[in-house]
């Protein structure tokens, strides 16, 4: 775009003086479309490199809901991976059965994988658990996120195993991760605070990776908008019941007033992890007496949940 076309009241990119589309309040940087996209992709690549999230020979399965985060994740990984050795990408979608919500995102996921020509499988809750999330949650909507979390975790583990994945990539972003840190602090749950889903798998499950963990929700929205890939999708109808909703609202206010709050929370987590390394008692690995899956107690969360779902 020619600079003459730009109104004078448009802030300029710090790298090229083109029209800025994003202002990072923490660093005070303004970035134009091209430099913003390059910055996001380089930061994701750096997260992957520095944390060894993906290595040559990996088959990375993307947990693709079709919402904004997993859509951006797929687009960025598809852009980055051709430059890496022998890494394969595919996608899996879990259909929880949430009326008025999931249909739209699944349609969006189908269109995306078709555009990229990517292998894609879809697994409905009904196939794995005999019913939809909507049916399971009748009368217990307040527990939606914990019930869905347990069922989705199992569904994704099954999907990753079926696909022969070596890594399962999820679209968790900086906001999600900062919220989790804060929630674990609020709950006083130190083991969960320092637990890393990738290193925690210890060969029991396909390791999970979160390449977008340092990209904010707003940056993801801008990235999609700049690619013409923004879809005005509905929010999960159960989100209003979650503690996460309150924490999200609180952190958004703090981030707005004090830019960098979410990154600082992540830095706190990293420091606590370093301090705790090797000091926390490791939970012994047991196997669920009902399904045989690895777990920390006598019965896994899924089998415990299933008993209450059938009541």
């Amino acid at each position: 775009m020619a600079c003459d076309d730009v109104p004078v009241k448009t802030p300029r990119c710090d790298c090229c003086s083109g029209p800025a589309v994003f202002h990072d309040k923490k660093t005070a940087r303004h970035l134009c479309r091209e430099h913003f996209i390059a910055d996001i992709e380089e930061r994701v690549a750096e997260t992957i490199r520095s944390r060894h999230l993906i290595v040559p020979g990996d088959h990375v399965v993307i947990a693709l809901s079709g919402g904004k985060d997993s859509t951006a994740l797929l687009m960025i990984l598809a852009r980055l991976l051709p430059s890496w050795d022998s890494v394969r990408l595919s996608a899996v979608t879990i259909d929880e059965g949430i009326a008025g919500y999931r249909e739209d995102t699944i349609h969006s996921a189908d269109q995306l994988v078709a555009r990229y020509g990517m292998d894609h499988t879809s697994i409905p809750f009904t196939d794995l658990f005999g019913g939809t999330l909507d049916a399971f949650l009748k009368g217990r909507e307040a527990e939606a996120c914990s019930v869905c979390g347990i069922l989705r975790r199992k569904a994704l583990n099954v999907a990753a195993e079926r696909a022969g994945a070596t890594k399962l990539a999820t679209g968790h972003n900086l906001d999600d991760e900062a919220q989790s840190v804060f929630m674990n602090v609020l709950r006083g749950d130190l083991p969960r605070l320092v637990r890393d889903s990738g290193s925690d798998s210890k060969g029991r499950f396909t390791p999970r990776i979160k390449p977008l963990m340092f990209v904010s929700e707003k940056e993801i929205a801008v990235y999609l908008m700049l690619h013409g890939a923004w879809a005005d999708l509905p929010e999960c109808p159960y989100a209003v019941h979650a503690l996460r909703g309150e924490v999200r609202s609180m952190l958004a206010t703090l981030e707005s007033k004090h830019p960098g709050t979410m990154l600082h929370l992540m830095e706190s987590k990293t420091r606590i992890e370093a301090q705790c390394a090797g000091r926390l008692d490791e939970e012994p690995v047991r196997h669920c007496r009902e399904c045989g899956d690895p777990c920390s107690g006598e019965t896994c969360q899924l089998c415990t949940l299933k008993k209450t779902l059938s009541q």
Binding site: S65, G66, G67, K68, D69, S70, T71, T105, G171, E217, K218, A221, M225, W230, D232, L233, P234, E235, C236, A239, R248
Partner: peptide, 8 residues
Amino acid sequence: IIRIAHGG
């Protein structure tokens, strides 16, 4: 004005 939907 576009609201950023959560989740996904």
